[in-house]
Every structure is written in C-alpha cells, then in structure tokens.
Amino acid sequence: MSKTVMIVDDSTTLRQVVRLALEGAGYSVLEGADGKDALSKLTGQKVHLIVSDVNMPNMDGITFVKAVKQLPAYKFTPVIMLTTEAGESKKLEGQAAGAKAWVVKPFQPAQLLMAVSKLIMP
C-alpha cells in the first residue's frame, strides 16, 4: 500500500511536476490548488504527508497548516513547507504552525523527493 502525499500549491505546473516525481518514486499523490481546496480534500482521505506552498490565494499555507493540525486525523501528519530563500520569517512562522520540514523554492523535483523520502518511505 503506497503512501499518499498531498501537494498544495496554486501552480498547476508545480503540482504536475511534483506529481510526476513522487509517483515515479512510488507515492500516491493528491493535489490541492490552495489551502481551502486542500482542506476540503483531506477529509475522508488518508494522507501521510503534506507538501504546502506558503503564499497562495484563498487560504495561505500558514493558515492551512494550522487548520490541518486542528484535525484529529492529521495532527501528527508531517508537513513540508515550500519556502523561499528570502522567506526566513515565513519558515519560522510555518514551523510554529506545525510544518517542521521545508524545501526552498525554486527547487528541482529530486530535491523535494529527497525531503519527502526522509520523512516517509513510499
């Protein structure tokens, strides 16, 4: 049974590439276009890891992570935040919200895959 990773980002391209990389490594992938969308897709699913962007329309990544951590089924789910090299304060904010892992944007698919596989095996 492969592990499911949810990728939350407002860029379709990013989601597609991440999906390609993760599925290629044996993970199942769910997509969320923004925090709100992702939150609505989490219920009733078993997601083992969440990868989320910070700056998104509708619901930003920080708010999203805080909301996820409120859900009993996801309070211990690891979250990788996609931060920017300039966004150190966002990274800390994300960590305070519960996203203890991060990948700096822009990244190549292999870098994200590496971060994901540190946390969960496919």
Partner: peptide
Amino acid sequence: VQPVVVAAALDKQKAVKDVKTAEASLIR
C-alpha cells in the same frame, strides 16, 4: 534557534475570493 515568530501577524489575505475560488475548481 531564532525566537519563534508568533503567528499573530498573519497576512490578512482576504483575496479576491469569489473569482479565485472559481478558478480553483476549474479543470483544463
């Protein structure tokens, strides 16, 4: 270990909600 920034100063991104929400549920 930097002092954890308390998340109080959250961006109030009350984005252009309706349009964006609609966009999110679009398929190409």
